[in-house]
Design a protein around this nucleic acid. Structure first.
Lengths: 380, 380
DNA sequence: TATAATAATGGGAGCGCTCCCAATAAACTT
DNA sequence: AAGTTTATTGGGAGCGCTCCCATTATTATA
């Protein structure tokens, strides 16, 4: 049915090997020959069989994207669609394909080993949120190249993340600077790393300014709008004057609850979210939120993973991507007079040291993208 | 690195072929032998190499899922996440994997042929919205098994869809029954099939009851909330007393616009959406909408595609999945007295014949799922 | 018990590619 | 011009599996 290398070879009067060289951009081909072969390939719309290539070369140019499904918020939170989009685009750009696994909540051994050993995937991007995820351990023990979206609390693995602690510390500071005294927070599930980190940032910010932690103002959400709504309803009796929600979707839920309680935003309660998902600017009032470049992180994960695949045994990578506080109306900064100078341009008026102390920076900081801090640590 | 069939064979004292038989559930193996081999496989956590299997057998158990990206609403509309989820789950259940392509808006030849000829994919699920999509034509001309999510206007291809015309006819009728006289509609982009069909249903409903089509009450949206909002703002000067939005996300946008115009829902303007996405019940007031089982459609697509792959040359399948009008507050049916009997239970008080007249029903209607009408047509 | 069926197993060929090495062609040296 | 070096090219082997056919073990039948 489909053409083979041999067919193309015959049609262009060269050997199988030469065609292979042309396809793989091997330099040892005379320009004239290359053109001749290329024309036939173009002409016949030839695609090399990836299964055969995978078998022979041990490399398929397929990247596995593993996302823990079962979490309800996959449906309502644009996080995963954006991530998938970023990954997919980058794969296209780098001539790779993406294999998608929405893994069951409790990965069975079978699923994991299927992902690891099917011989089809060159590497894996894992968007694992959990503190203690069996698949991370399996991957870590295997020799399959992989990268996490989101740092891991204990294992030294390749990852790409935002500095959640620093970012939410900054977000909370922003609320403190608006003279808010009773700042509540709606966290994500406690067994998730990002969620934990964002809570830590909140704690640090309070601590930075010697504000007491009021435990009645801390509530665990589940990333969903309904969860944010429910949490805010339980928070309101304790009269918070601000709330930091660990993602935008919960912030939207909180906003509904605040409205229903006949309170004004931001006058009575200021709200800050996290993510800057597309709908953040469409809440009433528009949501102040910590932007993280989800799509870029997906793309960066692909590029880094490909690099890891190309350079096995290299140092493990920790990549932190910059966040940015996007100030809209919901936090009150635009209506009340600011304390200091042009804070809206640089809302951070202090220096927070890099948080991820696990790793020592020995970096190769020279990077085309100044937003990205790359660091390498200990040889794997 | 990874184990091979040969390794398992050696370890269990049989031949490569026998192990292969065990793995592929071939019946010609003595039960005792099967158990022995199975134990070793289990024990070593063996996974056959899919690339090799693909090469040798010409079948990989990989299904391609192609989604036109670039459309902005991928981010904000839960449609695609739900579809992906449905497809992925069904693939897991049937021991298949899914390869994801978010195709660029204008598929380049290269992309298409990459999808078709990479030799990795047994079949393709295509969620193509466009009236005239080059990739559909390519697939139709190729011998790659594929199924469309959403019918095709001209080509006779395998597809699974809801009866959009009938469903929106029913939704519009529901508004008419609430004594609405100036029913507006916000459609999707005109070059998309589902969008076209839903508009046709709207037209038919008006026609059914001899209501005039007021062209100033018809506006094209782009499936997004912002689009729905903008459209509604332009609609309001013409004083509609109801609006049928072609999806829930646009309905949500319309609701915002209506609120801002200080109009009441449903008293001044009734709103009906389409999809019943998770957030439909969270609008203010909760949205009446036509539910389509997106996730099930994804799963059904997988199952049908596998069946098509297993039975090449069989008749082409047209599967229509039932929709259901979910009545909440936004349409006014729950506050004004109903015209007739228990309409909320069966809001359709007339018989609309099946719309898809292209195909003659010769069906194998006996199906475990009564919601699904299967029909087969003309041998391919 | 011999013989014909049938059940169970083993091994070769080959899927379409890459990799390696040998063979040939072209370009330099002296 | 002969000898080297270097740039191209061709072909064999083999990746790990399935498929087919030959072989052997087992059972049924005469």
């Amino acid at each position: 049915m489909a053409l083979t290398l041999e067919d193309i070879a015959r049609l262009s009067g060269v050997s199988r090997s030469t065609v292979s060289r042309v396809i793989n951009a091997n330099s040892n081909v005379k320009e004239e020959t290359r053109q001749k072969v290329l024309k036939v390939i173009q002409n016949k719309n030839f695609q090399p069989n990836l299964a055969a290539r995978g078998l022979a070369a041990g490399r398929t140019n397929i990247i596995g994207l593993v996302i823990p499904a079962g979490v309800a918020f996959i449906f309502t939170d644009p996080y995963f669609p954006l991530l998938i989009q970023g990954v997919s685009e980058a794969c296209n750009a780098h001539d790779h394909s993406v294999m998608l696994w929405l893994a069951e909540p409790e990965y069975e051994r079978r699923t994991i080993s299927q992902i690891l050993h099917n011989g089809l995937v060159d590497g894996v991007i894992l968007s694992s949120a959990l503190m203690d995820d069996p698949i991370v351990k399996s991957l870590h023990e295997s020799k399959m190249p992989f990268i996490l979206i989101g740092r891991h609390p204990t294992l030294e693995v390749n990852y790409i993340d935002v500095d959640n602690i620093r970012a939410s510390r900054e977000a909370t500071h922003h609320l403190i600077r608006q003279s808010r005294k009773r700042i509540a927070t709606i966290t994500g599930p406690h067994n998730q790393i990002a969620s934990y980190d964002r809570y830590q940032g909140y704690l640090k910010a309070l601590n930075d300014r010697n504000l007491p932690l009021l435990s009645e103002l801390v509530l665990e959400g589940d990333w969903t709008e309904a969860g944010g709504y429910a949490a805010m309803n339980r928070l309101i009796p304790y009269k918070p004057d601000a709330v930091f929600a660990a993602n935008d979707v919960m912030a939207a839920g909180a906003i509904s609850a605040i409205h229903e309680a006949q309170l004004r935003i931001p006058e009575d309660v200021a709200v800050v979210g996290f993510d800057d998902t597309p709908n953040a600017s469409r809440t009433q009032p528009p949501l102040t939120t910590m932007r993280q470049p989800i799509q870029s992180m997906g793309a960066l994960a692909v590029e880094t993973l490909i690099d890891i695949i190309d350079h096995p045994g290299s140092d493990s990578r920790s990549i932190l991507v910059a966040t940015e506080l996007v100030i809209r109306e919901s936090c009150g900064a635009l209506i009340s007079k600011p304390e200091g100078g042009d804070e809206s341009k640089n809302p951070v008026d202090y220096q927070i040291p890099p948080v991820n102390q696990l790793h020592q920076s020995v970096g190769n900081p020279a990077d085309e993208n100044p937003n990205i801090l790359r660091r390498r640590v200990k040889n794997a």
